[in-house]
């Protein structure tokens, strides 16, 4: 079967998932930090993502159904393998999502919904990190089905990636708050950003050492000649961006910390992609083997090439409408 659209779908899906990680990462991160700021600032913190959060989560649906459409075999194997992390993530997203609306309309239960918002963000983030860790480690597969148990996800490595994502999203969230807030809250966000940055860097280092030790294929990919030299710019750039993020969090610019956090995510994301390519079910199926037929990919590609830029345009537009600093004292609605 001819599969000429696999590379472009790899790029589109990779882009879609990255956009999800950057956007929902920032609002899940804001949710995590929300639990750490004083009660007076909570409305402002929540207001900073009020108009955006459901659009951001839409990328999760697109990532999920995009994977199902372009690489259905991968979807059918990976999702059952992370049954419980996905369950926990979905339920956590339910809680934090409804907390947006409920907290303002049930003042008596404000503290409960604030707690649900923060805990939901934290748990959803950790669960996504566990999904990532399980994915990198690979699954037990026979034929076209996952044959492990629903508890295979619970490995030390997956717990590490869970923690890594909490720090990472916390960093994105702090960058976003630096951008959207002013005064003491902004200063607090800069400090929180630095804490998250340190945590993120430690986790990136740990994951980068652990994966090649655990997988000969990945070790060969990074340390075989001449890959070591060719790939050297990636860790160097990561270190440089991390250094820049540290400096940016300590200085005046409002946008730089957020951009640095996004760049750090992009580099880590590329790192994972380099480790695994061309596998979409690590150890079992390549992108080409898991792909849907050309007719399916072509049919969806036509619309995607037209619609995705439109979506990006009006998503950008709505961010533009709500640009500037949040004024939490005025309330949300």
């Amino acid at each position: 079967m001819a599969q000429s659209f696999v590379p472009i779908w790899t790029v589109i899906l990779g882009l879609g998932i990255f956009i999800y990680v950057a956007l929902d990462g920032l609002d899940l991160g804001v949710g995590i930090l929300h639990g750490l700021v004083g009660p007076a600032d909570r409305a402002t913190v929540m207001g900073s993502i009020g108009p955006f959060w459901d659009g951001n989560e839409t990328w999760l649906i697109l990532g999920g159904v995009g994977l199902l459409a372009a690489f259905p075999l991968a979807f059918a194997i990976i999702i059952p393998a992370v049954y419980f992390p996905i369950l926990v993530m979905l339920l956590a997203l339910v809680f934090r999502g409804v907390a947006f609306e409920f907290r303002f309309k049930q003042p008596a239960l404000l503290r409960i919904w604030d707690g649900a918002f923060c805990a939901g963000s934290l748990v959803a983030t950790f669960a996504q990190g566990v999904v990532l860790g399980s994915f990198i480690q690979g699954f037990k597969v026979e034929g076209r089905v996952f044959v492990g148990t629903s508890f295979d996800f619970a490995t030390p490595f997956a717990m590490l990636t869970g923690v890594a994502l909490v720090f990472g999203y916390g960093l994105l969230g702090a960058g976003w708050l630096v951008l959207k807030t002013e005064g003491p809250l902004q200063a607090w966000s800069r400090r929180a950003g630095r804490v998250c940055l340190v945590g993120t860097c430690l986790c990136i280092a740990a994951v980068s050492l652990w994966t090649p030790l655990a997988s000969a294929t990945i070790a060969q990919r990074w340390f075989g000649w001449p890959n070591t030299v060719l790939l050297l710019p990636l860790p160097l750039a990561t270190a440089a961006v991390a250094f820049y993020a540290w400096r940016a969090l300590g200085r005046d610019g409002d946008l730089q910390p957020f951009l640095a956090a996004v760049a750090l995510f992009l580099l880590s994301y590329l790192g994972v992609a380099i480790s695994l390519f061309p596998m979409i079910v690590p150890g079992h199926y390549t992108l080409w083997e898991a792909a849907s037929p050309e007719s399916t990919q072509a049919f969806l590609l036509v619309g995607t090439l037209v619609l995705l830029p439109v979506v990006l345009f009006y998503t950008g537009w709505s961010y533009w409408i709500f640009r500037g600093k949040v004024r939490g004292d005025l309330g949300y609605h």
Partner: peptide
């Protein structure tokens, strides 16, 4: 999902996109 995705998944994806 594995059996029907080739036919149904693009429709779901179009739901998200449109």
């Amino acid at each position: 999902s594995d059996t029907t995705a080739n036919v149904l998944a693009p429709l779901l994806a179009y739901e998200g996109l449109t």
